[in-house]
Design a protein around this nucleic acid. Structure first.
Lengths: 210, 210
DNA sequence: GGCGGAATGTAACCAATGTTACTGCGAACT
DNA sequence: AGTTCGCAGTAACATTGGTTACATTCCGCC
């Protein structure tokens, strides 16, 4: 494990902290689509993401979903940070967007290291900061953009995460994540295809130039 | 100053930390409407809110605004927390929603205390947590609610902040904060008045039962 | 090859919200 | 008292996005 740790977090943490993480952390592989956290769950360990991507979703009373943001390599989940300390429930759902590997750290360490290691504090603060910024971006998107622009942003982000020009999603799945209906997504995607920005296929979308 | 500190933060911080805050912090009074932070500003001190309320706003490229949430007594601004450490610019605007008093703490102390006082760490983490939760609530509101429901929530919140049943806002101001148009707000307010939930007057709104 | 289910395409319609344009009212000022 | 200006009321219309309904296509499976 220590090698992956160094590769992904070596520039952040001093050797002693890496050593500690190595001792108490446990490896975990998750498959694409796996639910990693549910709304209302209590959190007992903190994930450090080594590879893959996790999507973070919000749900309303009617079960309608909305994609908030993605976590990637080197990220951690801000939700767990204070859930651990404050013993509160998760407000969000986390689902593996791709196959992913992570290191799980017991919550007790979280606060101990915050007192002990400056680099850990920096990491935790920056995680919060990044998450807040992603939330701002999400809010901008919902509040200020129209659905066609939101869709384009979504496709860009998805392509970036997938590290390729092909997105394997159905229109229905996209509709869920943007909290709209399948018909609307089909309509807008077709427009993008007519503009020659994407090409549509069954079960996947080819991003050409958006 | 020490007395206000004790009243508002005494239950959070140990005596030694209160003492330190008292030594390095400076009092500041701001009048309603005063701009306390602008998008793009660098932050050099951290506010602890003693009384009053601060509204936190987001703005898009076209200058359109959106109210994110209010800060109140006992809160601090999460934005400053990492702006200080990371030397990044503010992503938000802060405006005094009422007359307010606060204690400004130099940023250098922020990280020092985080290493020294467990209670300070707890406070900072909880601040982040609260802000994230408020952002979730804001997103829920924008994404899942229709404008009439958002307006009702807004009025409730405003009345709570004002500690009374009368809201001194014009329709135009409300429209800005909810990022819609004055006509839409007037229309919806009139509906609420017809339902006998509010009564409308020039420059103010009387909340009756919503 | 035919069947069935999932995914997509599309039209027609509806509801919510945004826009434009104009009216009238009230308070402040002269 | 008359003027001015900001605020509020309202109608008419445009646009966006959501809904319903149905046709078509693709693919795996028998």
């Amino acid at each position: 494990m220590i090698q992956e740790l160094k590769n992904n977090f070596g520039h952040l943490f001093e050797a002693e902290l890496l050593q500690e993480i190595n001792q108490v952390g446990s490896y975990k592989d998750v498959a694409e689509g796996a639910k990693m956290m549910e709304i209302g769950d209590y959190v007992r360990s903190m994930p450090l993401l080594i590879s893959g991507a996790i999507k973070i979703l919000r749900e309303d009373n009617n079960g309608d979903e909305l994609l908030l943001y993605f976590l990637e390599k080197g990220d951690t989940c801000a939700m767990t940070l204070t859930c651990c300390l404050g013993q509160t429930k998760s407000e969000i759902r986390a689902i593996a967007a791709t196959d992913a590997t992570l290191i799980m750290v017991p919550v007790e360490k979280m606060e101990i290291w915050a007192g002990k290691y400056k680099s850990w504090r920096k990491f935790v603060f920056e995680s919060y900061h990044n998450r807040l910024n992603e939330m701002f971006a999400t809010i901008d998107s919902i509040a200020f953009l129209k659905m066609d622009e939101r869709l384009v942003n979504y496709l860009k982000e998805k392509a970036r995460i997938a590290e390729g020009a092909i997105i394997y999603s159905t229109h229905q799945e996209i509709a869920y994540e943007l909290h709209t209906s399948r018909v609307v997504i089909s309509r807008l995607l077709k427009k993008l295809e007519n503009l020659n920005k994407i090409s549509l296929h069954r079960n996947h979308i080819h991003i050409k130039n958006i």
